[in-house]
Design a protein around this nucleic acid. Structure first.
Lengths: 123, 123, 123, 123
DNA sequence: GTGGTCTAGACCACA
DNA sequence: GTGGTCTAGACCACG
């Protein structure tokens, strides 16, 4: 999988990595049990510091999206817990923004369905 | 309108203000043409720094949600431009998170509709 | 409050800080609402790096023992959630160790009561 | 006896082995004089590195819980020395955590008694 | 060779 | 002035 990082934006790099890994898992590009690159490899590949890569993995681990054993690198995992309050608040906010951007209810629902197709999120 | 600010959370205060104003506009609690409190009044009311309140207004202005005259009076307005890339990326991310939290397509669409009702976003 | 750090031991410094803060809260040396030193002050005081101090605070924050606002330093808080599985497992292990060290049930229970008194844990 | 190892957790594997052996001795599942599997057998059985198994045995030996002859056969033994400072500090910490989690003195003492029964630690 | 920990020092967003 | 983020590089525990 390929990461696209925006170094000039406001979103911390470790958060960008986290977000893209989550999206990749959801879309099936990363499957449970699959290995992620080591922190060193990821850091070199992206031209970032080890600790930044490590922080991204720790965040993903704390949310249950991966496990990091001592023996090998990080492994993709399906999270057990449900969605946190941030997820719901974020969804609510985005919908409000779309509504104010002039989109109607049906358009927004259609957009959600389109995202499902684009990301191949399944049923 | 009443702002509920979380001073201990991770979201910057000016961003919380911006988000809640956007939600309030979308839900009709704030109507186009309506006046917002001055920076000074808002800061005093919420117990925050004037710079923080000012930053929130600048952000809202740059996104087209309000206009600010020279006398500090901010006025609500409907944005002309469509939704920005952050809005779509945010929506995509949240949907992925919900999907990974175990929700199916129908459940997520139903959740979106529920948000429409809760926030009274109309058609 | 005074921290006693063992730089040569096996326990990470940030974990030692976390443990001593937790003990201090339990024993009333730190009261809810009380301010902790800033990461910079703590780092200088203890002769450690800022990031190490920061890591300790983040750990305490993630466990609900403190809040860290942007405006001021860290503030002591009573955690809402119950004890984690590590706490119970740790207790079980220590009791087994004491039992093997030759202490009987009554002695161990008396030891627990003694800890309550020493740390002034109340009723 | 059966070991349950968590390869994804934060506790080192050799430490998990040590802890479970200690608990097993305390609960009578392992009796003094009883033989433990060889390093090689243990490593194979658990799918771990021989160095890891060896490290666990060295730790147990250094604490007096086992003796190891020259033929790799480890034998369970009751430790002569009293509990180390780590044990007491650990107990103190766990009790503080439970107290902060909202449990009162009586509840915590009852919990200790319950552990005694669950692990069959005797009188 | 892996991830975890720590250091020394820098920059920036936030308030 | 606060905490958050990031870098460059080091050491160590673990396996």
């Amino acid at each position: 999988m390929l990461l696209r990082l925006d170094f000039s934006g406001d979103i911390p790099i470790y958060q960008q990595i986290r977000n893209q890994v989550v999206t990749a898992i959801a879309s099936g590009q990363l499957k449970p049990g699959e290995k992620l690159p080591t922190v060193r490899a990821l850091a070199e590949e992206c031209g970032i510091n080890m600790m930044t890569a490590s922080k991204a993995y720790q965040l993903l681990k704390s949310e249950g999206y991966i496990t990091t054993g001592r023996r090998d690198g990080a492994t993709v995992r399906l999270p057990a817990a449900g969605a946190g309050p941030e997820t719901l608040e974020g969804l609510r906010l985005r919908i409000c923004e779309l509504r104010l951007a002039g989109m109607g209810k049906d358009e927004i629902l259609a957009l959600c369905e389109k995202i499902f197709e684009e990301e191949a999120l399944g049923k």
